[in-house]
């Protein structure tokens, strides 16, 4: 099955404010998409709409394939060791090969450290490990570079490239520059209401 994510003519309203409207987006297997825009313009809301966590005010989103979301919320139990916290999601996702993600993201030495003691960048890497373990074709990444050092950033860009080369979709919302394989760009300001 080919992964696909198509958003048609969506608008987003938060409270009384219309954040953006008439936004269409189409991603097929192998596509990468970079969503840019200033703070508060609605990048995170767009990601949540694409993920199906938020209903668009107008328009609809069609998805084919499972999705993984990495946003600012870690969803790992703060009091557990990283290994145990990740193990929960591995069991939920039925992941058989958790070692690979840990190695790629160099989390091995941190497995016994309680999640609450991890630094911002380490937490981000933990969230990315959860995403990799999921083994899903559609990646939704909301500000994935926050807190990552330059080396981790390179590793991560390489991971995205691999993912897309393998027929995955990567949608990245970030105000920072990120090297994506032939990305389509969505400048949210163009759709501001």
């Amino acid at each position: 099955m080919q992964a696909r994510l198509v958003a048609k003519d969506i608008a987003c309203r938060r409270g009384e404010r219309l954040l953006f409207r008439a936004l269409s987006l189409e991603c097929r297997a192998g596509d990468a998409c970079h969503i840019t825009g200033a703070n508060g313009i609605g990048k995170s809301s767009l990601m949540r709409i694409l993920a199906g966590l938020l209903r668009p005010y107008v328009g609809k989103v069609d998805r084919k394939g499972t999705m993984g979301l990495v946003d600012e919320r870690l969803a790992l139990d703060a009091n557990l060791s990283l290994g145990k916290a990740l193990a929960f999601w591995q069991r939920i996702d039925g992941c058989r090969e958790p070692g690979r993600a840990l190695e790629l993201l160099q989390l091995g030495p941190l497995m016994d450290v309680p999640v609450r003691y991890l630094s911002t960048g380490q937490k981000k890497r933990a969230a990315l490990a959860r995403l990799l373990n999921r083994g899903c074709p559609i990646w939704l990444l909301d500000e994935p570079l926050n807190g990552l050092d330059s080396q981790a950033q390179k590793t991560f860009e390489a991971l995205i490239e691999q993912h897309c080369a393998g027929g995955g979709i990567a949608i990245v919302a970030s105000h920072q520059h990120i090297a994506l394989p032939s990305p389509s760009r969505v400048e949210l300001a163009e759709f501001a209401a």
Partner: peptide, 14 residues
């Protein structure tokens, strides 16, 4: 709710 656990479970169709 704050940690986003329910969102992640929702994404997994639970």
């Amino acid at each position: 709710l704050e940690a986003g656990v329910f969102d992640q479970l929702h994404l997994r169709g639970i």
